[in-house]
Computed example of a mutant assay.
Amino acid sequence: MNRWFLLLSLAVIATVAGIYAYLGGFTTAEVELLTTKEPIFLAGRYFQGRADSKDFGPLFRQAHQLQESGQLRGDLGNVYYNDPEAAGDTVKAFVGLIVADTTSQTLPTGYRYSTFSGGQRVVRARVQASYMVAPDKLYSGIKHFAEQEKIKLGKVYVERFPAQGPVEVLALVK
């Protein structure tokens, strides 16, 4: 009986580890300091309130539905205007899609544009991983890099979750 329990436990652990590896859980983020060349345009909605609010989660789902339906073309993305980890229960964010420009698409009702200006110094972290495991790797990579390089970070973070390619976070440098 104990041997079967041990074999079953090992099989479950191996399966969970395999899924975690498939999602990119064992990859490390590539982190660098750079200056953005062009502005980043977002189409979405602004949110300020509690992270566990019933209104916050649907913003992400709505953006994903607009992308899937083809009503808006772009990568899922958001801008946090405060540190998502340090903010505790209050979030200030613009949630939607990162789009190529502000003229080629008609925005859905309730959506507006926001711009992250080009020419800004940022710490960029990238990782080839699922959006389910990437944020922890990206934010910890950025904070570790900033500590090592003695860089002070601002409170603005841009997240980008493309359908193909690496997930990335840009952290504004003070």
Rank of each mutant, 00 (worst) to 15 (best):
D55Q: 13
G118D: 10
A14D: 10
Q65L: 08
H64A: 14
Q48D: 03
A134P: 01
L170D: 01
A87G: 11
S140P: 08
D52T: 13
V158K: 00
V79I: 15
S69M: 02
G44C: 05
A11R: 05
G88S: 08
Y157L: 05
M1N: 08
T27N: 14
E85F: 10
V79K: 00
Q67P: 07
R73F: 11
A163Y: 09
G110T: 02
S104M: 02
V169A: 03
V16L: 15
R73H: 11
K92A: 08
G110Q: 05
A14T: 12
R45P: 03
T102C: 11
K152G: 09
Y80T: 00
Y131L: 12
M132R: 15
A87H: 02
A93P: 07
G165Y: 08
N2C: 00
L23D: 08
D52R: 10
A86T: 01
A146H: 06
V169S: 02
A11F: 10
D55G: 03
L170A: 01
G88N: 08
Y81K: 04
A125V: 07
G70A: 10
V127L: 04
Y131E: 13
G118C: 07
N2E: 11
V91I: 15
L72E: 03
T106E: 12
R3C: 00
L172T: 06
D52Q: 14
E159Y: 00
F5E: 12
L76Y: 01
A29D: 09
V122E: 00
